[in-house]
Amino acid sequence: MHTITYIRRGVQILSLTFLFYGATLLHLKPTEIKWYAMQENSRQATELLYGNPTWTQPFQTFLPARSCRFAGTHGTFRGCLMFFFSDILTWRPPLGVVLPSLALVVVLMVMLARFWCGWICPLGFMSELLYEARKYLGLKRIRFSAPLRNLLKAVGWGLTFIILFSAWFISWSAVAWSIKKPLYLAVCQMCPSKLITPALTGFPIMINLTFPGASTTLLVSLFVVLVASTLLYFSGFILKRAWCKICPLGVILSFFNQGAFLSKEKDLIRCTKCAVCASACPMETSTVYEEKTKKYVNHSQCIHCYRCVDLCPEKKCLTVKFLGLPLFKS
């Protein structure tokens, strides 16, 4: 029973170990990344020199999304997909240099879409552990209401836009350093992983509310967002996968959920409309239940956890297919 969930848990444990502790365990040396904030000696920004940018490291861009740079020297990869996109927008490398990595990323996204979220992402896995703990304690779960879900979706879009826009904005030399500094890798400044990943890997947590020459107002505002998003993350204890509902990386991947190679199909006639799928969805989408005329049931926010397929009481009603090949069946 519930085979898919068991398989998934196994994959999640493996990927967390690999992404967070892989470098230590496998004696790998992840390439150092230099970036603005680390130029503390001179207390100056080196806008021209950028050693080992992400796009020169194909190994690091092998996954559409990777572990967090705050996993420090323990992690296998440095920096997630948002890091990668932000870097490209900020440094605007020649297309020829960035194209292979970019192409690989796009191909993987087209193939797997948000599969990352449900099976690989260590943050997502840990937030699932949060609600597993609550289940164990027998505490009541709270569901997001439909308006709140829509609001969170809008917030996610907003965040994604701000992150990508600010990355592009600071690439202009006319922009003042006081703005450039805080907004550099704005994604990391707001991401709960900045606090959670170091806590797990022993990497120092870095919070600078003041920085020479940088706008304190901006730094503090970003910190407020960080606190809010971390709180949202931990509210995953009673609200399933709360952070995942606004995660900017998820927003980008979600564009590929429709029409990805990995796809979920429903036998419309066999389905008894029992809505078990809707109640099982950790992202609280109800497309699998609501869709009654088309066999493809891929919601943009689906994290491919296949909990719906796992719990569906009707044999062969839901099928997960990769390029038409069935992987899992209910």
Partner: peptide, 26 residues
């Protein structure tokens, strides 16, 4: 006899949700 309650989580609330769904939706 065909349908049954299939809770996502076996907490009291989760089971009640499943019982509720089981009678209406299918």
């Amino acid at each position: 006899l065909w349908d049954y309650a299939e809770p996502d989580e076996w907490t009291l609330e989760g089971m009640l949700e499943a019982v509720a769904a089981r009678y209406i939706f299918p």
